[in-house]
Design a protein around this nucleic acid. Structure first.
Length: 479
RNA sequence: CGGGGCGUAGCGCAGUCUGGUUAGCGCACCUGCUUUGGGAGCAGGGGGUCGAAGGUUCGAAUCCUUUCGCCCCGACCA
């Protein structure tokens, strides 16, 4: 077992921080609440970005960039929006050695500037829809920061679209939710529940918010991504109007949706163990590492290393990228070399020593199960991709199983309390309350409505108010 | 923003109560030798003026004042 990582069941948050440190994903910055994303972490982010970016492009979106600084007055144009974001805004009051006439907000999100620009760009129904995404950083001042989960500055993607009709905008909102859901499940191997947010959890200024909720390995929920149906709220605040085909002047319907570097936190807390990070192969920047091992420098340099290079090249060709690396940390002893890759979450370790040389095979060790298996060198190009896919599936299924084992259906408040007093987890219950009732429930150890799952539109008797016709909701403590 | 704790080498700490040799230990790091299939052993070595400022004193990591920062627990959050 790793000796620099606190066991998960001893102290979960320390374990989380230790995993990040050991895997060299990130480090603390000099400014509280900010983090440095180290090369290993950034490579992971780039990989995540790549998959999502493709998902956006495939659904017709284009990338653009809007400015970091937003005039204070913009934020104030949408009442709920200001109220929601004002407490966490960082404000620039001085620049160029002078006090600014109007303070500038460091963007906490860009609905307002983008709304402003869209109003200039939209005149006719022919200008719609606008389907723009931007990759950027945002700032939301945090009182209690946690690496990747809640930092004052974080990296994310925000999609902003404007449509001619309500139906189209709603379709877009749900389409992007589905893009999120499928990438999280298929690529990040994180099982998520797609659902609608409750009144109390809605994005400030949205008519409706949809979310992908995941269960972390401590049974708490993590909101992994959100998609908002903004109605005409921002269109009215920023005057995004167009003339329709039947000559009427109408307000546009807008949406926005985002995922952030929080996904890295989700990956850590979904898959990793007491030995460190575990990454699903499809998102891992390094999918396999080849370790030439020998006590003899001659064997190492003249036989094993060239062979490892050859295998590296072959596998990279099959995998379609530089996903396989040769480990050349020869100043370390083998055990130490194993550990560095273990902690960094490399899905597959391929050991190449004298034994393997004689039998012309590689010893493959899976990160997810520690299972060892000799692979014939001739068959590597088939077996390695297979093994990687196996690991991918196993990680997803393992996480799904964990979530299911920790999801409980209840119909009374008493049962509800009992679960959160004991193990915790996800609770499924019919719920018909509003913001008031949500507040009351929050008194029960901070439990909140995570979402109303889209896949289940059954109705029943509310466990809290007793009203009939209540929707099915998922409750949990959350990050 | 309320409650608690802590700032001494890159990290983790001892020393502080009861001022007094050149400020110490473990890990990490560097060099050498022996090792090498799941975190090696031995030997040698480099690195800190003790968060900052001011004060008390012959003398301050240690006492006093001020200040900054961080961590943990609660209220707010992608």
């Amino acid at each position: 077992m790793a000796r620099n990582i606190t066991p998960k069941n001893q102290d979960y948050s320390q374990w989380y921080l230790d995993v990040i440190k050991a895997s060299e994903l990130a480090d603390y910055a000099p400014v509280r609440g900010c983090m440095v994303i180290r090369p290993t972490g950034y490579a992971l982010w780039e990989s995540i970005q790549g998959h999502f970016d493709k998902g956006f492009k495939d659904t017709g979106h284009v990338n653009a960039y809007f400015p970091l600084l937003i005039p204070n007055s913009f934020l104030e144009k949408e009442a709920e929006h200001v109220e929601g974001f004002a407490p966490e805004c960082a404000v620039v009051t001085h620049a160029g050695g002078e006090e600014l006439e109007e303070p500038l907000i460091v963007r906490p999100t860009s609905e307002t500037v983008i709304g402003h620009m869209y109003s200039k760009w939209v005149q006719s129904w022919r200008d719609l829809p606008i389907l723009i995404n931007q990759w950027c950083n945002v700032m939301r001042w945090e009182k209690r920061p946690r690496l990747f989960l809640r930092t004052s500055e974080f990296l994310w993607q925000e999609g902003h679209t404007a449509h001619a009709t309500r139906e189209e905008a709603m379709e877009e909102t749900l389409r992007m939710l589905e893009v999120y859901r499928s990438i999280m499940c298929d690529i990040l191997a994180i099982p998520v529940i797609a659902g609608e947010k409750s009144e109390g959890e809605r994005f400030p200024g949205a008519d409706n918010t949809y979310t992908c909720e995941a269960m972390m390995s401590d049974r708490k929920a993590l909101q992994a991504g959100t998609s908002h149906f903004l109605g005409q709220n921002f269109a009215k605040a920023f005057d995004i109007k167009f003339q329709s085909q039947n000559l009427e002047v109408e307000y546009a319907w807008t949406t926005s949706w985002g995922v952030s570097t929080r996904l890295i936190g989700a990956l850590i807390m979904t898959h990793s163990d007491d030995d460190g990070l575990i990454l699903p192969p499809r998102v891992a920047p390094v999918k396999a590492v080849i370790l030439p091992i020998s006590t003899s420098d001659v064997t190492l340099n003249e036989k094993l290393l060239p062979m490892a290079r050859e295998i590296e090249e072959k596998l990279n060709k099959v995998l379609g990228g530089k996903f396989v690396k040769v480990d050349t940390q020869f100043h370390m002893r083998p055990g130490e070399r194993f550990f560095t890759h273990l902690q960094k979450g490399v899905p597959l370790r391929l050991e190449l020593g004298e034994k393997e040389l004689d039998e012309s095979c590689l010893m493959a060790v899976r990160r997810d199960t520690s299972e060892k298996r000799a692979l014939a060198i001739d068959a590597l190009e088939v077996l390695v991709p297979q093994l990687l896919e196996d690991i991918q599936k196993n990680l997803f299924n393992r996480a799904l199983k964990f979530r299911e084992e920790n999801t409980f259906s209840v119909s009374t408040l008493e049962e509800f309390r009992k679960i959160f007093e004991n193990s915790g987890g996800f609770v499924r219950a019919y719920f018909a309350g509003g913001a008031e009732e949500e507040k009351a429930i929050k008194e029960i150890g901070g439990v909140t409505v995570r979402c109303f799952p889209l896949e289940d539109n059954s109705t029943g008797k509310c466990f809290f108010t007793g009203k009939e016709g209540a929707r099915l909701a998922i409750f949990a403590k959350s990050y």
